[in-house]
Design a protein around this nucleic acid. Structure first.
Lengths: 213, 213
DNA sequence: TGCAAATGTGAGGATTACTCATGTTTTTAA
DNA sequence: TTAAAAACATGAGTAATCCTCACATTTGCA
């Protein structure tokens, strides 16, 4: 039972790093691996990324790569986690102290812009959250993450509409959030102008639902 | 240059059948191949589908499979085309003679239910349109198809709101349609109860946008 | 009937994710 | 200090899988 160092991937579960790098040397090498993977994903997408190329570009052997990542998706997952943590903090901050309709309108509008900017600017995030990859576990992570993000919105709505049915508010938040992500995915896969239009239209629709006419 | 019989897949293009079966025997065999692929997709998803298994289940050799389909995605594409044609006809019929707000409300509501039912009932459609597969060309097909479907909605809106900006109506239709598809994808990946709730919420939001309060 | 086109076959080429036996470096502890 | 243990590094090799191709068979047709 070496469960403390090995978090293997079984079934459809998410694969964590196979072994945590404990020495300085290996920590640096793992960073290089992640950087190489990130660059390759930005260039070609995570599906076209080849493990051999990641190793080569990181200046390590293929074996070393698999020393720390049990499989291909574990690398993508590790990169995804970083972005997830970042954006979650950003969402939480934007929605934390909203207390009236006008505040929600401003905060939500700003949030959409920031998120859209992130999608446009970060090739890795673009790839990972854009359905370019087929990993089932990763999509489940996306879903869980989306639920977590929607909860911030739910909290605001419950504050603003204390009398409404909480379950309905949760459904609304989740749907609006998912639609936002769908809109981002759509927006970055069409031209820039049309993408901007679509995001603006989404913002209008979502705000109408969130703060009324 | 044998371009007349071979519609090969180059670049990121969509792959059509490599060669049309002209004899009765081969037409039947191609049908068996498609049936086998459909069954396997239903069981395991298109990503896990193995070409060798398709051939085996269809009772043909792997070579025969590649005689008619240039690559794996061509089979999925062929199946997708059938569903696409079906659903497009259904959408067109539902929206064709809508002439007032109440008619739109009824037709759209019904359409969403039908579409949701299709997603729930058809494992192949479920797989193909659900991001379970990573094929870029297939996602582009999905996008083109979605635009075509949204046009039916645009036509209705232009009829109902002759004074509105046509470009804005197009954006609205496209977004609402995409959101609908996103909602379906979401709905089938969560539990049945939550899925139904989400679809209902989407319907409310979309109708509010389409026919006003 | 005989020939050309269409169709059928499956062993094998090519790619790629991943393993493992073995060697090297770092840490630990007596 | 030093030897054992643990961590780390390596890359040739394994297995799985998509797809090709040279050759065999069947069908349509003049």
């Amino acid at each position: 039972m070496e469960g403390s160092t090995v978090a293997g991937s079984q079934d459809g579960q998410i694969a964590s790093p196979r072994r945590a790098p404990s020495q300085q040397r290996s920590r640096e090498r793992v960073e290089r691996m992640l950087a190489a993977a990130s660059a390759l994903i930005a260039e070609q997408g995570s599906d076209a990324m080849r493990m051999g190329e990641v190793a080569k570009r990181a200046g390590v052997s293929i074996g070393s790569l698999y020393q720390f990542f049990p499989d291909k998706r574990a690398i993508v997952w590790a990169l995804a986690e970083r972005h997830t943590a970042e954006s979650q903090a950003c969402i939480s901050a934007a929605l934390a102290d909203v207390s009236d309709a006008e505040g929600l309108r401003r905060a939500f509008s700003e949030l959409v812009d920031i998120y859209y900017g992130l999608f446009l600017a970060e090739p890795v995030m673009r790839d990972i959250w854009s359905g370019t990859q087929a990993d089932k576990a990763l999509r489940e992570l996306e879903l869980a993450d989306s639920r977590a993000n929607a909860e911030f919105l739910t909290a605001v709505l419950k504050r603003l509409r204390p009398t409404a049915d909480p379950a309905a508010l949760e459904t609304t938040s989740f749907l609006i959030w998912q639609m936002g992500e769908a809109t981002m995915r759509l927006a970055i896969s069409v031209g820039r102008q049309e993408g901007d239009d679509l995001v603006a239209a989404y913002k209008r629709m979502a705000l109408r639902e969130l703060v009324g006419e």
